[in-house]
């Protein structure tokens, strides 16, 4: 297999992000203005990384799952469950360590459940995780008893709205998680295992790889990421909204992974690129908000931009462009 350089993979996504940011700047000249206010950075760019953080965190967990030809549709619902657990724990006065641990453990349990269905019962990931996607929201509603549970624990709220070195806390968490996950994937054999399973699971088994354990671990990590995103989402609005927290975010997370260039057919993946994908999606969302466009156009604009990005990434188009360039170069030389 040809070894890909980072610059080879990154080009279309970075170009897309630059184009979207430029467009945002054209419709709203103050887009790049970042000021210092109340001890933290303030501006549309900061909004992009702050609002993009939950999807970025989901995408970190989703990337490795998709790289094994799997998918986790339940992450949005797991967000709601984790948020509900954190909020109810905070309401009864538990300290941050308990609320956080409780929420993360519940997320981990959800991930293990998904992983067990996929790895040990051999269920299709789509169906296996669909179960929790539906049931999870019901579970969250059960915990919150159908209402929005609001809390005022400053430590928990800090997780969603605080800032570290001027950067919003959610973005800091996403960044740390991304780097940690990337290091585990690329500095240990884990990444290789994931790619082997995604390319050919039975071949990977025959080489002696414990594919079931690896898959179980990846789904468990996905659940953990979803729980973290859920805590952030709840802390952001100081309440757990079981009906709406994380609603449809599984689709955004999958989209972020796909924009990042990870193949749905398994094998090839990059966690930082998925996070970049999440930032691209959010740059688009924030751009629409500051542009003053009527809301009826939101989905059309998003769809068009996404189609453009995916076309730019397609191998065929890439080949065509590079062939055209090669011909131009030849002509220039002769």
């Amino acid at each position: 297999m040809k070894r890909l350089h980072l610059s080879d993979i990154a080009r279309p996504q970075l170009l897309a992000l630059a184009c979207i940011l430029l467009l945002n700047w054209l419709v709203f000249p103050g887009f790049f203005t970042v000021t210092w206010q109340d001890g933290r950075l303030f501006g549309s760019l900061i909004d992009v990384i702050n609002r993009g953080a939950p999807v970025a965190i989901l995408a970190v967990g989703m990337t490795a799952i998709i790289a094994t030809r799997g998918v986790d549709l339940s992450v949005g619902a797991v967000m709601a469950v984790a948020g509900a657990v954190a909020a109810t724990a905070a309401v009864v006065g538990q300290p941050l360590i308990v609320t956080l641990l409780g929420a993360l453990l519940v997320g981990l349990a959800c991930g293990l459940w998904n992983g067990a269905l996929v790895a040990f019962l051999g269920m299709q990931p789509f169906v296996a995780t669909l179960v929790l996607m539906v049931a999870g929201r019901g579970l969250a509603q059960l915990i919150t008893e159908g209402s929005i549970v609001t809390f005022s624990d400053p430590a928990l709220i800090f997780v969603g709205t605080g800032s570290l070195l001027g950067l919003p806390m959610p973005a800091v968490i996403a960044l740390v998680l991304m780097i940690a996950a990337h290091l585990v994937m690329r500095r240990t054999a884990m990444g290789l295992f994931v790619e082997a399973i995604g390319t050919n699971r039975s071949a990977a088994s025959y080489t002696g790889l414990r594919t079931r354990t690896v898959i179980l671990t990846l789904y468990a990590f996905g659940g953990l990421c979803a729980a973290l995103a859920g805590v952030i989402a709840a802390a952001d609005i100081r309440g757990a909204d079981a009906n709406n927290a994380g609603l449809w975010l599984e689709l955004d997370a999958i989209l972020a992974v796909v924009i990042g260039g990870t193949s749905l057919m398994g094998g090839r993946f990059s966690i930082p690129m998925s996070v970049l994908g999440a930032v691209i999606i959010q740059a688009m969302n924030t751009g629409i908000l500051v542009s003053g466009l009527p809301p009826e156009f939101n989905l059309i604009v998003k769809a068009s931009v996404i189609i453009l990005i995916l076309v730019m990434q397609s191998d065929r188009i890439g080949e065509l462009v590079s062939r055209r360039f090669a011909r131009l170069k030849l002509r220039g030389k002769s």
Partner: peptide, 23 residues
């Protein structure tokens, strides 16, 4: 002067208002 959808939810309401305030 500005009108956008917040999908009747708190989190979207907050996000949309953040955008409006910047703009």
């Amino acid at each position: 002067v500005r009108s956008q959808t917040g999908d009747f939810t708190r989190s979207k309401g907050k996000e949309v208002m953040e955008g409006f305030l910047k703009a």
